[in-house]
C-alpha cells in the first residue's frame, strides 16, 4: 500500500508540475498582450540602437554588435526586460569597441 501512496503522491506532483508549466505559458501570453518594457530596458535598447547606427556610418560596425542588437530586439518583442538590458549592453559595447578600433595604429607600415 505504501507503493500506492507514493505513486499517488507522484501523480499529484506530476499534475502540479504540468499545471505549473501550462500556467507559466498562459502567463507569458498575458504579458505579450501588454507591451511594456521597464524604463531601464527601453533606454538601453534605444542607446544600443543609436550607438550601432553611429558605428555603421563610420564603417566600423562589428557583426557581433548587430547580432546582439537583434537579440535585444527579439527580447523586447517577448517583453523580457532583463534580456533586453543584457543584449543591449553587449551591442553597445561591441559598437563602441568597433569605433575605438579606427584609432588603432595602422598595420604593416
Amino acid at each position: 500500500m505504501n507503493v500506492l501512496r507514493i505513486a499517488a503522491r507522484m501523480a499529484v506532483g506530476g499534475s502540479l508540475l504540468l499545471g505549473g508549466v501550462l500556467g507559466s505559458g498562459v502567463h507569458a501570453a498575458d504579458d505579450a498582450a501588454n507591451p511594456s518594457l521597464t524604463d531601464e530596458a527601453s533606454l538601453a535598447l534605444a542607446n544600443a540602437t543609436s550607438v550601432v547606427e553611429k558605428a555603421k556610418v563610420k564603417g566600423a560596425l562589428w557583426t557581433t554588435a548587430t547580432g546582439a542588437l537583434t537579440q535585444a530586439q527579439e527580447a523586447a518583442k517577448k517583453q523580457d526586460s532583463a534580456a533586453v538590458i543584457q543584449h543591449a549592453a553587449v551591442a553597445s559595447e561591441q559598437a563602441f569597441l568597433g569605433m575605438a578600433q579606427l584609432g588603432y595604429p595602422l598595420m604593416g607600415n
Binding site: 568597433g98 578600433q101 579606427l102 595602422l106 598595420m107 604593416g108
Partner: peptide, 21 residues
C-alpha cells in the same frame, strides 16, 4: 591605403596584416 592597413572587425585583422606582413 588607410583602409588596407586599418584593423577592422572584432577579430582585429587588416588586409595588410595578412597579405603584406
Amino acid at each position: 591605403k588607410r583602409f588596407f592597413h586599418q584593423r577592422r572587425g572584432q577579430l582585429n585583422f587588416s588586409c595588410a596584416g595578412c597579405h603584406i606582413s
